[in-house]
């Protein structure tokens, strides 16, 4: 099952989620760092795959654009 594009809380992002950065670039989350550059109020979503390495930080209490979530329950 796949979700249509939506906005979700950064803290609700799951491994495997497909996100879109403000630049328009997209990543499939394979790792979530609990802080960003020493800032505990931020998270960083990373895709570290054979396809690409890409990092996107977000405020912990902010929203991110979710492009796709596999295995979502309707």
């Amino acid at each position: 099952m796949t979700l249509a594009p939506a906005t979700v809380k950064a803290t609700e992002v799951q491994l495997g989620d497909r996100l879109r950065a403000r630049s328009g670039a997209e990543l499939t989350v394979t790792r979530i760092d609990g802080e960003f550059m020493g800032r505990a109020n931020m998270l960083a979503f990373v895709e570290d795959s054979g396809e690409q390495w890409f990092k996107m930080p977000a405020l912990r209490d902010g929203d991110v654009e979710l492009v796709r979530r596999e295995n979502a329950v309707e």
Partner: peptide
């Protein structure tokens, strides 16, 4: 490098 949030597009 464009690997950080696509900030070098």
């Amino acid at each position: 490098c464009n690997q950080f949030a696509g900030q070098e597009p």
